[in-house]
């Protein structure tokens, strides 16, 4: 009854306050779940902070995500389309903001492979890369990119270079060192006014130096009004990148890489089939 078929596609799920990220067999990370139709999907789920529950009503599938454990669930979609994803276990302030409208996308096999190939390669320019990480790694569920809009933590817009006050009363500058410290040890300095905000989990070990650099650049760019305007809608599309001068350099080269990573994706999923 509960036995998991052997030829599943394994996807690692991380839940945190208040977002999901999904890691695919080829290493791509996204905040939405993309899956092929008519294949058994096995989710291995971890939580970084408190209890969450992965719930897709359309699939009648639900399982709690328990910190300190890896919980598994599996299901097999039978119809292509986009489905809502909910968190069903109370997890604090923004619990109901974990509604992910059309957060589960069921592709046909070709569409899934195409998606995987595209998702594995982040943008080249560090600012775009930083924004890409920001939208996929859960930053955006607490930090807005609109000026002055406070979700849980402070907004990222126009913070760079400003002088900030801690709750202890010290002043310091919002610079690369502070950004690095806040990502790796978020509780080291509390900004005044955020003492009662929910605690941010540490990203120690989750970002490598390149990614930290990308995020730092992204925050630096957040002091440019045109960049803020471009990312405000939550996406950074090709024309926006072009107008900012941060498009990925050589189109042709990217094309070949995409194809290459598509092959990788195939290989990976075949490997997991064998496993």
């Amino acid at each position: 009854m509960m036995e998991i078929p052997s030829d599943t596609i394994n996807i690692d799920v991380t839940a945190r306050k208040w977002d999901w990220s999904f890691q695919y067999p080829n290493g791509a990370i996204d905040d939405k779940l993309h899956i092929p139709n008519n294949r058994a999907i096995r989710l291995r789920m971890r939580s970084e902070d408190v209890l969450h529950a992965f719930y897709v009503p359309a699939f009648r599938a639900k399982s709690d995500v328990v910190p300190g454990r890896v919980t598994e669930m599996w299901f097999q979609p039978i119809k292509e389309g986009e489905y809502d994803l909910f968190c069903a276990e109370y997890c604090g302030d923004q619990h109901s903001e974990m509604i992910k409208r059309r957060g589960v996308i069921v592709h046909d096999q070709a569409g899934y492979e195409e998606y995987l190939a595209k998702a594995v390669s982040p943008p080249k320019h560090p600012a775009a890369h930083g924004f890409w990480l920001y939208s996929r790694q859960g930053c955006k569920s607490c930090h807005s990119v609109e000026d002055g809009k406070k979700i849980v933590g402070p907004s990222f817009a126009n913070s760079w270079g400003k002088s900030v006050q801690t709750s202890a009363g010290d002043e310091f500058k919002f610079d690369a060192q502070y950004v690095r410290e806040s990502i790796l040890a978020p509780q080291a300095k509390y900004r005044s006014g955020y003492e009662n905000a929910s605690k941010m989990p540490s990203y120690q070990g989750k970002f490598d130096e390149d990614e930290l650099l990308a995020l730092t650049t992204f925050l630096e760019w957040m002091s440019k009004p045109e960049f803020v305007a471009a990312v405000q809608d939550g996406t950074l599309d090709a024309t926006e990148k072009e107008s900012l001068g941060i498009q990925d350099e050589v189109e042709a080269e990217e094309g070949t890489e995409e194809a290459a990573s598509a092959d990788d994706g195939d290989a990976e999923s075949e490997n997991s089939d064998d496993a």
């Binding site: 009503p57 359309a58 809502d84 909910f86 968190c87 109370y90 619990h95 109901s96 903001e97 409208r101």
Partner: peptide
């Protein structure tokens, strides 16, 4: 039965 989770301040 249509999938509305409990303890939600906002909903679809």
């Amino acid at each position: 039965s249509r999938g509305m989770p409990r303890r939600y301040a906002r909903y679809v």
